[in-house]
Design a protein around this nucleic acid. Structure first.
Length: 679
DNA sequence: GATTAAGGAATTTTT
DNA sequence: TTCCTTAATC
């Protein structure tokens, strides 16, 4: 490493030999297979710092991560590690695939055939638009079994993200929809046209348009040529379109670094494809593969258990991980009498560790699905233990929040019909039919102020002028100062909200939070983009900061816990049916993903790991009886795994049974290719 | 054409 | 229980 010495790269000595090799890798494709807790973030951060130190201008580096927070975190570490400083890493292109697509498509909107003011729909809006089109096409009129809107969108999304035809997608994932194949094709084809007419994109379109743009040599040269190095984190969770985008970006330069762990691939429901990481060496010929196997996170006994757990998987890159942290408590598997007992156990342990000096925010409770923490949350509230919940039902999906945002959206893009629908239906006396008429009227002039020139039905007169005035004010306010616009909207919307929904007080607080968030933005467009592409993932994230220095416990879905670590981890509801989820036991592939999910959950623990499962589940509805079913322990906690753990029970007597731009043609081509997918 | 009432179906993970 | 669609009424 003579080279390092004369460049004063002393800070590299922080790394182990494998990490160092990855960091100083020269040109050409590089795959870093990084086991859980093996210093993956550090390695990627240091590589960014190294590239900059070696003279790559930061704005010529593209760093793609799973969340924006992850990229901010990484760049902060890069700045801290090296001598290059924060001012350098500040200009690295960092973010998610979707936010990067948004940025690129804004720059090249003309070449993509998109209006410059296009807006991005979230999933709910996309499903609503799908539904509008479905009714217009008269599909499944009197057919109760026609797939529901979210299922339709799910099928569409799978086809797009997995680059697969309808037939195999339906056969594999939606066999009960096979008989609707032709109707779905017609629906999707019209859905695509409708989005183009309205200047809206769904999540999938962001990737799809980006990929199509790169299919032209000229654009691939132009866009790919902006970056000397492309780095991708969590590569095991990318889908086929994303892998194709990377290949498109690297057609004329092979500097690409991907980091991931095939044992932690947990997003196949979003069409993520483990093959991307397994086949990387074939897809990018000449790739160097480096494996990181030393775990810095967990104590040895925890690692012993998680190694045994993941050994049940069939195809893997990674070998077993080893830890230098020898001493430690073995994981504890706790059988509880029922859910309430499980809550009692978890709370008691949390307090016990807290007394021992581990603050709440260094402890986390993990679970498979958002609702599985409902009863625990009630218990925590009762005991006055504050917590932040990540994942599960999201803030932006609440009706009143979507209502408010709709006003911003139509101001930004007056053709956004789903947003208009929401707004217009709020007005007393306007239903779907009148709303549709108004939308046609407003869309014609592409100006929200055109509302005033529409004669409303008599029943709607009262609020009509007020709404017109609001739209006037919003247009006049222009691009800037979105917080003031939110405030103006609230003055109109507050009464409507109070009338339409219950607990207006709580909802009002939500809207205040939005205003607070908006105050951090200079442009309305940027605010809207971030709200849809990078939504706050904990309700308390967006809360004003009165509780800022208070200590809080973390509750999280396993998916949202990816990449995190805590001193103490509680994995609750480790019973068959919850983990693996009943919804995902149709085939081996799904079950194997559930296994990886269990692995991700358990490898988040540094010092203490508790895996709990309730023996009885009471029926949720029909609380008048005490009917219950017995559950069995998760099939993943087999004899081998259990042999490495302590077994305990709580509230039960004894341990139960085991059974337990250059190319004018691009515009047309992109459009044609996207449209022809459904012919 | 809008609103409300009643009946029926379903129930994960997230950009 | 909740969400969503459909049918009946205003």
């Amino acid at each position: 490493m003579t080279e390092l010495a004369h460049d004063n790269l002393d800070w590299l000595s922080d790394l182990n030999p494998q990490q160092q090799k990855a960091v100083v890798h020269g040109d050409g494709p590089l795959l870093v297979v990084a086991g859980a807790g093996s210093g993956k973030t550090k390695t990627l951060a240091y590589r960014v710092a190294y590239l900059i130190a070696k003279g790559t201008p930061p704005e010529r580096i593209l760093l793609m991560t799973f969340t924006r927070r992850a990229s901010e975190e990484m760049l902060k570490r890069a700045a801290g590690a090296s001598t290059c400083g924060a001012h350098m890493t500040g200009s690295v292109w960092g973010g998610t695939f979707h936010s990067m697509a948004n940025r690129i498509l804004r720059m090249y909107s003309q070449q993509s055939g998109l209006p410059s003011d296009f807006t991005v729909m979230d999933e709910g809006d996309s499903a609503d638009l799908m539904n509008v089109v479905r009714h217009e096409l008269n599909l499944g009129r009197n057919d109760k079994r026609f797939p529901r809107k979210s299922t339709c969108l799910g099928i569409y999304s799978r086809c797009v993200n997995g680059c697969e035809m309808m037939e195999p997608v339906l056969t594999k994932h939606y066999p009960w929809c096979l008989e609707y194949k032709e109707q779905l094709k017609a629906l999707f084809s019209q859905y695509v046209i409708r989005k183009q007419q309205r200047g809206v994109l769904d999540y999938d379109d962001l990737l799809l348009y980006w990929l199509q743009l790169l299919s032209s040599d000229a654009m691939a040269r132009e866009i790919g040529g902006r970056f000397d190095h492309v780095l991708v984190d969590e590569y095991q969770d990318t889908n086929t379109v994303q892998a194709d985008i990377l290949r498109g970006l690297r057609r004329f330069n092979s500097n690409i670094t991907v980091v991931g762990d095939d044992a932690q691939s947990i997003y196949s429901f979003r069409a993520a494809n483990v093959r991307n990481i397994l086949d990387f060496p074939q897809q990018f010929p000449g790739a160097t593969v480096i494996t990181l196997e030393q775990n810095y996170r967990s104590v040895e006994p925890i690692l012993e258990t998680t190694n045994r757990l993941i050994s049940q998987a069939r195809e893997r890159f990674t070998k077993d991980l080893w830890s230098a942290r020898r001493e430690g408590q073995r994981p504890v598997i706790v059988t509880c009498r029922d859910e309430a007992t499980q809550d009692q156990f978890v709370v008691a342990k949390i307090l016990e560790h807290y007394e021992q000096g581990i603050p709440l925010h260094k402890q986390a409770v993990l679970f498979r699905a958002g609702h599985l923490s409902d009863s625990l949350e009630i218990e925590l509230t009762r005991r006055n233990i504050s917590y932040h919940k990540y994942g599960g039902l999201r803030f932006l999906e609440a009706a009143h929040v979507k209502d408010l945002i709709s006003f911003l959206r139509v101001t930004e893009n007056p053709s956004d019909e789903i947003a208009w629908f929401r707004i217009l239906q709020m007005i007393e006396g306007i239903g779907p039919a009148t709303a549709a008429k108004i939308i046609t009227h407003v869309t014609k002039s592409h100006d929200p102020r055109a509302l005033k020139t529409f004669a409303p039905p008599a029943a709607a007169k009262a609020n009509w002028t007020e709404l017109g005035q609001l739209m006037d004010d919003l247009v006049t306010a222009g691009e800037g100062n979105p917080a003031a616009q939110v405030q103006r909207i609230r003055s109109f919307y507050d009464d409507i909200m109070a009338q339409r929904y219950e607990n207006a007080q709580a909802r009002r607080r939500d809207l205040e939070h939005i205003e607070q968030v908006a105050s951090g933005y200079k442009s309305r467009r940027q605010l809207l983009t971030d709200l849809t592409l990078d939504p706050p993932n904990s309700t308390s994230d967006i809360a004003a900061n009165p509780l800022k220095d208070e200590d809080w416990l973390v509750l999280s879905t396993i998916h949202s816990a990816k990449g995190c670590e805590w001193d103490v981890v509680y994995v609750i509801h480790a019973s068959d049916g919850c983990l693996p989820s009943d919804m995902a036991t149709d085939n081996d592939k799904q079950i194997e993903e559930e296994l990886r999910l269990a692995y991700v959950a358990m490898t988040r623990a540094r010092n203490f790991l508790y895996v709990t499962w309730p023996l009885r589940y009471y029926h949720r509805w029909g609380s008048y009886t005490d009917k219950h079913v017995y559950s069995q322990i998760s099939r993943f906690l087999n004899d081998d795994v259990r042999a490495s753990c302590e077994l305990a029970s709580f509230g039960t007597s004894g341990y139960p049974d085991d059974r337990s731009p250059m190319d004018d043609d691009i515009v047309g081509r992109v459009r044609n290719q996207i449209n022809s997918m459904w012919d």
